[in-house]
Design a binder for these strands. Structure first.
Lengths: 415, 415
DNA sequence: CTATTTTGTAAAGTAAGTTTATTATAATAA
DNA sequence: TTATTATAATAAACTTACTTTACAAAATAG
């Protein structure tokens, strides 16, 4: 693609400096003009100008004086969090989750419902809209400004055009989900891949806070990665970056749904773990799992985690091996990206130490030492609903970083 | 790392727009003010302002009128290429190469010499300086402005501090090579890893020209990658990005120098290919290679390429297998980065179709289809001295993209 | 020769920042 | 109590990169 010539204008300069101030306020909680001047390098009059406009848009509020040792007391300001509210929607394989958050990621309301019988785009979005309306009802709408809706989906998503390009678990292709949902809800919608949304959630509210570069690994049905580079989500040329699930780890390993052999996903995803367990049980390996089920085909990944925590040998061994492979896959990412941190999230966290211990050991064994100095591999602390928060965070990113004038953000969202 | 708050100032705005104009001039060869205005989106008076300053600094020159169908004839301008000259230095495992280039990458002079007996930093840099002086002599120095020296080195390099952190083939650690060379040459020096330099060369003068995202793979002694993301070289947190050589492709494969088993480098580097060939010959496999050498240990990688081109079965098979593994490694990069292009360079290119055919086939077999749509995997067209050009290109990047005021670029370099 | 088209400059205007001067207010020292 | 010092903040003038508007210059079409 030709790299489009892009001029910088005074408007952009103002916007960027304004958003810089907002980011500092979000991070610090509160700050005085003098502090902001020192942090940003902008002069005090420049900060005063910016703050005047932010107050005009009712984006910040005066917190009163704070005491210092000597000299005139500074006036503190903070984000007026009730100005920005956003809705997060996560379409999962078994349910639709919707949450209402303020700009600081605090939950205002939350609901979850099953998928509709029919999962064609139209019915799906109709159901999503119903749940959104429920969530809006839960909270008295009049008092808050809903900036918009963030939607997280599995598969390849084109966030620029708002299109669900290719979601493997659904019978869709190139569906304009943004348009569909905007038509139904009459609210502006942002869309991205679920892994990317999770990564944004970690960046703004989790263990990736303010990191320049880190990678979020989501392991449940499959294995995916969200990549943050230079504090910027990295999508790749046609929004396919981070597809670590089909990295080949074991040449001539087990057959994968993608047609190749030995992909990480065939060795480490929850789907493959469950499959391996069922097949081992059928082969006659002794296990708690066998005792609990007459029909082996009903063994779920949750059962396997449970069994492992009850010291079942078979379950532990399978989890250990899968985690070891995952560690190898992640070491590849550390070698190639040299990030500051890797954050692990998704259903796999339910495996706790049965998963994390072998994973971390294998990771450090296989990663280049120079690339994991002053580095951390850790689990997400955002909890089981991180996907919904992540979807909502698409708007946080938009407000604090996006290239749109702030004035509109404050007004457009007013209902 | 904490993401430093970075304001945008009017100075930066001007600088960026000025460099934007320069980039367009470099790319198009020449342009009129009116054209520049249309391409950049800047108004004509703004362009006039910028061009006046660029002429003042003698960075551009008037090319006279060009004919158009209707209306006043536009005046064309072009980069004054004799203003900027740069020296590229490549320190290789067996030699030091030095070249003198203009800002358009055209070679003015070139020399190559053996490494000194003693490869400690001091002697090494002394030798480098000698060769630089020879190259400068070759060209009558008085007439040109040498902006500075670009130095490309293998191993981990910290380009910010100008330090060779860890070069595996040398007995160094954390050597301030920039400082050393600046002291000797009295010219400003820029340093980076050889793979990264090669990638810049492809971006400015090769098949990566103006691409947003692509990856350069260098295969010779080892296997390394240079990564271009968002038209920006991606270094990673502590300058270790792109270390694809130690990606594990074959769990429990051959032992690698890094201590792990089945790294890409043990399967696909020229070193490993040569090793495999020698061991197969010793095992008694028939081959042209055996007939030519009494001492098998003298078989080199060049011999293997030759043998393969003469239809030697053993050589061909080994190259084919190594290339197949390389294809798997590159498919991982395509899956994870989803770049626009992958460019292959390094000694391996001497293997020609014996290497490229199986590599490409294996690559497309293993890469995710969605990630290699509208994608190209290709060989570098920059020739065997791309490493030297690449080193010099560190300055091209600095001039056209770097965050330093242009006025200084034009003046500092004057000898 | 005039109308039209395109390139380009001149002069005034805009606005986001900086510089300099000044005010406000608190703690501390005389 | 009063002067001094430190820190926060504003006011007013200045700077400057870009835009707007007006217009000049130069070429072709008719």
């Amino acid at each position: 693609m030709y790299n489009p010539a892009q001029k910088i204008s005074k408007d952009m300069m103002k916007q960027m400096n304004q958003k810089l101030v907002l980011r500092i306020l979000k991070e610090k909680g509160s700050a005085s003009k003098s502090e902001l001047s020192k942090i940003t390098g902008l002069t005090l009059p420049a900060i005063t100008d910016i703050m005047t406009e932010l107050e005009l848009y009712q984006v910040i509020e005066n917190l009163g004086e704070s005491r210092i040792k000597r000299g005139r007391f500074p006036t503190l300001f903070q984000l007026k969090k009730e100005v920005f509210h956003v809705i997060g929607v996560s379409i999962r394989s078994e349910s639709i989750r919707v949450g209402l958050y303020n700009i600081l990621g605090e939950t205002m309301a939350y609901t979850e419902t099953a998928l509709p019988e029919n999962t064609d785009p139209e019915t799906m979005m109709e159901r999503v809209n119903e749940v959104i309306q429920v969530v809006i009802q839960k909270y008295e709408v009049g008092s808050l400004n809903i900036l918009g809706i963030g939607l997280g989906m599995h598969g390849i998503v084109n966030p620029m055009e708002g299109i669900s390009v290719y979601p493997p678990h659904l019978q869709w292709e190139n569906v304009p989900i943004r348009q569909l949902l905007e038509n139904k809800t009459k609210l502006p919608v942002l869309v991205d891949n679920d892994c990317n949304s999770l990564t944004l959630a970690e960046y703004w509210f989790g263990k990736g806070e303010n990191l320049n570069s880190f990678i979020t690994i989501n392991v449940d049905y499959g294995v995916g990665a969200g990549i943050m580079i230079d504090s910027q989500l990295f999508h790749g040329r046609n929004y396919g970056a981070g597809q670590i699930g089909h990295t080949i780890i074991q040449d001539n390993g087990p057959l994968c749904s993608c047609g190749n052999y030995g992909c990480l996903e065939t060795l480490s995803s929850e789907l493959s773990i469950a499959g391996q367990a069922r097949s081992k049980i059928k082969q006659g390996f002794p296990s708690l799992l066998k005792e609990r089920y007459t029909d082996v085909n009903h063994v779920t990944i949750t059962d396997i985690y449970d069994a492992a925590h009850n010291n079942d040998k078979l379950a532990s061994n399978i989890l250990e091996e899968a985690s070891r492979y995952l560690g190898i896959g992640l070491s590849t990412l550390a070698n190639v990206f040299n990030p500051e941190k890797i954050i692990i999230t998704g259903g796999i966290l339910r495996g706790k130490q049965s998963v994390m211990d072998p994973l971390i050991e294998s990771f450090y064994t296989h990663a280049l030492k120079t690339n994991v100095e002053d580095f951390e591999i850790t689990t997400s602390g955002l909890g089981a609903k991180a996907d919904v928060l992540g979807a909502a965070t698409l708007w946080v990113e938009h407000v604090f970083k996006g290239d749109f004038p702030l004035s509109k953000a404050g007004k457009e969202g007013i209902t």
